[in-house]
Simulated assay, not measured.
Amino acid sequence: MVKKKAESRSTSDQRQYRYYDLIMAAFVCVLLCSNLIGVSKVVTIAGFTFGGGNLFFPLSYLFGDILTEVYGYARGRRVVWAGFGALIFASLMSWIVVTLPAAEGYTGQAALEQIFASTPRIVAASIFAYFIGELTNSYILAKMKLFTEGRFLWMRTIGSTLGGEAIDSLVFYPLAFYGSWSNDLLLKVMLANYVIKVGWEILATPLTYRIVNFLKKKENEDYFDRDTNFTPFSVKV
């Protein structure tokens, strides 16, 4: 009897999904682009000041919500770790390429440095904030799914984003820019970016419903994290 139960659980753990890898790839793509393109650029449109890269960063939270809602916290956590590794590699690659001696006659070094030469402080803040924020988002959504017994998806996606993005913003901006930006600008950008991120999640709710319902039907999966180990320091599923 014990052997049969162990075999059944092993089969479940090794189950293959049709769309999981594609969503993971989309998540990592959005994460890398939003952290490499415009992360330190401050934009003002119609009197509203915000970080340029944050127009697209909230998409990573949307994918994170979808992953946790359909496949569970453990598989969502695995994707967060994949993004963590991708960010570290991209940062290391950027640093190496920028610092390599330019060939004689090459005129693009200044532009390359301006675009990709983020300070170690900004890189570390970005990676740290991402890791904590995404895991907080996934944890809140998984726990709320148990509490609501799978109802009120909109409440879970928005509620988890409120928590995850708050942690991300409170960690990233002070670590990255305190002392180099004025306190007024820091608070203004941090608040504006938080509003943008949460606003994105609210506006994307109909799309989230469609994607989640599609995946649950196609994957025949609607995971509840009743026996999940919620430690962030694991990639086991």
Rank of each mutant, 00 (worst) to 15 (best):
residue 12 S to Q: 15
residue 13 D to W: 05
residue 15 R to V: 11
residue 16 Q to N: 11
residue 17 Y to S: 09
residue 18 R to M: 13
residue 19 Y to C: 06
residue 20 Y to N: 06
residue 20 Y to H: 13
residue 21 D to K: 09
residue 22 L to W: 12
residue 25 A to I: 00
residue 26 A to D: 08
residue 27 F to G: 00
residue 28 V to D: 00
residue 28 V to Q: 02
residue 29 C to P: 04
residue 32 L to D: 00
residue 35 N to V: 03
residue 35 N to G: 05
residue 39 V to D: 00
residue 40 S to T: 15
residue 42 V to T: 12
residue 44 T to L: 10
residue 47 G to I: 02
residue 48 F to R: 05
residue 50 F to H: 07
residue 50 F to Y: 13
residue 52 G to T: 00
residue 55 L to M: 06
residue 55 L to Q: 06
residue 58 P to L: 05
residue 63 F to Q: 03
residue 63 F to N: 02
residue 64 G to Y: 01
residue 66 I to N: 03
residue 68 T to L: 06
residue 68 T to V: 13
residue 70 V to M: 07
residue 70 V to F: 05
residue 74 A to R: 08
residue 74 A to Y: 01
residue 76 G to F: 03
residue 77 R to Y: 08
residue 77 R to Q: 10
residue 79 V to S: 04
residue 81 W to Q: 05
residue 83 G to I: 01
residue 83 G to V: 02
residue 86 A to T: 02
residue 86 A to C: 00
residue 87 L to S: 03
residue 87 L to N: 14
residue 88 I to E: 02
residue 89 F to M: 12
residue 92 L to N: 10
residue 94 S to Q: 03
residue 96 I to F: 14
residue 96 I to L: 13
residue 99 T to Y: 15
residue 102 A to V: 08
residue 102 A to I: 04
residue 105 G to M: 12
residue 108 G to H: 09
residue 111 A to G: 10
residue 114 Q to D: 14
residue 114 Q to I: 07
residue 114 Q to N: 13
residue 114 Q to V: 02
residue 115 I to L: 15
residue 118 S to E: 15
residue 119 T to S: 15
residue 120 P to Q: 01
residue 120 P to N: 05
residue 121 R to Q: 11
residue 121 R to W: 02
residue 121 R to N: 06
residue 122 I to S: 09
residue 124 A to E: 04
residue 125 A to E: 07
residue 125 A to L: 03
residue 127 I to Y: 06
residue 131 F to C: 09
residue 132 I to M: 11
residue 138 S to D: 12
residue 140 I to R: 00
residue 141 L to M: 13
residue 141 L to I: 14
residue 143 K to V: 09
residue 147 F to E: 12
residue 148 T to Y: 14
residue 150 G to E: 06
residue 151 R to N: 15
residue 156 R to F: 01
residue 156 R to T: 00
residue 157 T to L: 10
residue 158 I to F: 10
residue 158 I to R: 06
residue 158 I to M: 07
residue 158 I to E: 11
residue 159 G to R: 00
residue 160 S to Y: 01
residue 167 I to Q: 08
residue 167 I to R: 07
residue 168 D to L: 10
residue 175 L to W: 08
residue 175 L to Q: 05
residue 176 A to P: 04
residue 177 F to V: 00
residue 179 G to V: 01
residue 180 S to T: 14
residue 180 S to C: 07
residue 183 N to I: 10
residue 187 L to N: 07
residue 189 V to T: 04
residue 191 L to C: 14
residue 192 A to H: 03
residue 194 Y to S: 08
residue 195 V to R: 12
residue 197 K to E: 06
residue 198 V to N: 05
residue 198 V to R: 04
residue 200 W to L: 04
residue 202 I to G: 12
residue 204 A to R: 06
residue 206 P to T: 07
residue 207 L to F: 14
residue 207 L to T: 11
residue 209 Y to V: 15
residue 209 Y to L: 13
residue 210 R to C: 12
residue 214 F to D: 05
residue 216 K to A: 06
residue 216 K to P: 04
residue 219 E to G: 01
residue 219 E to Q: 09
residue 220 N to E: 15
residue 223 Y to G: 01
residue 224 F to P: 01
residue 229 N to D: 12
residue 229 N to P: 07
residue 230 F to Y: 14
residue 233 F to D: 01
residue 237 V to W: 13
